[in-house]
Nucleic acid binder design. Structure first.
Length: 265
DNA sequence: ATGCCGACCCGAGGTCGA
């Protein structure tokens, strides 16, 4: 099973990139972030030409997440459980297929809106931790993947790419990322590549791509049984070098899940 | 120290991202 995540920074601007990438990489499921449109504007037909169905949690201009799959998927949640009912930011999608729950997230950045904006990020992370802990208690097979907007270690950003006071580096943010790991989830990329930079984001500004001043802020965190099936996990760096790219690249995870099921049968 | 770039809103230039 191939699962991917990609912050596309506007799905309408990036629809040809996404379509070409789907044809090349053929993920079973991909979750998208920052689609920046409401569901009616989502270019479903473009991806349907390749056999992909879309589940969209849209929002005008900002945020917005989606899941594309050529399998049958069931949408379980369109918002992060535990957030206030009046929260209108489209940042969470939870879908299920073949016994796996795939959670796609666009975690708040936390640098805008002052301390209230940062507190929103922290509250969001607390609810995400609670969701993960609930699924672990239920002994479910799941992964949380997407744009986490956190750089947990110094290895996860190029020197000078972030201010030391950036919300991506604040101890409150990192502590909550660590809580997900301590709960029992496995960072798929680090499990296989302990020392590689594995950046997933390069700012459009200041020649960050050309100077390789990147960040590793997109992750796939696997529940224990899924982690045992991990085959491959890597950012698809080539996408950043194309014309008019997203500032993020896809992260692609391969699991021996279908194989395992076949053996068991 | 600040802005760089690029997307959104709309139809200028402000706001947000990370």
């Amino acid at each position: 099973m191939r699962i991917a995540t990609w912050n596309v920074n506007s799905v309408r601007v990036r629809q040809t990139h996404v379509k070409d990438w789907l044809a090349r990489v053929r993920p079973d499921i991909v979750v998208l972030q920052e689609i920046k449109c409401e569901a009616p504007q989502f270019p479903r037909a473009v991806f349907a030409e390749l056999g992909y169905k879309s589940e969209v949690v849209g929002q005008k201009a900002y945020n917005g997440v989606a899941a594309l799959s050529h399998r049958d998927i069931t949408i379980r949640h369109r918002a992060l459980p535990g957030l206030p009912a009046d929260d209108s930011q489209a940042r969470y999608i939870e879908v299920e297929t073949d016994g796996i729950t795939v959670i796609g997230i666009y975690l708040p950045n936390g640098n805008s809106g002052g301390e209230a904006g940062f507190q929103y990020k922290i509250d969001w992370m607390d609810k995400l931790c609670e969701r993960a802990e609930t699924l672990l208690r239920e002994d479910r097979d799941f992964l949380i993947t997407g744009d986490f907007n956190v750089c947990p270690t110094a290895q996860d950003f190029a020197p000078g790419a972030l201010s030391p006071t950036d919300a991506l580096l604040r101890p409150e943010s990192i502590a909550r990322y660590r809580r997900l790991i301590y709960a029992g989830l496995t960072d798929a990329v680090r499990a296989l590549h302990p020392t590689a930079p594995a950046y997933t984001f390069w700012d459009y500004q200041a020649g960050c791509w050309e100077r390789d001043r990147g960040l590793r802020i997109d992750f796939a965190l696997l529940s224990p049984r899924l982690a045992e099936t991990l085959i491959a996990a890597a950012p698809d760096k080539a996408e950043r070098g194309l014309t008019q790219p997203s500032d993020h690249v896809p992260l692609v995870i391969d699991l021996a899940w279908g194989d395992k099921a076949a053996v068991a049968a």
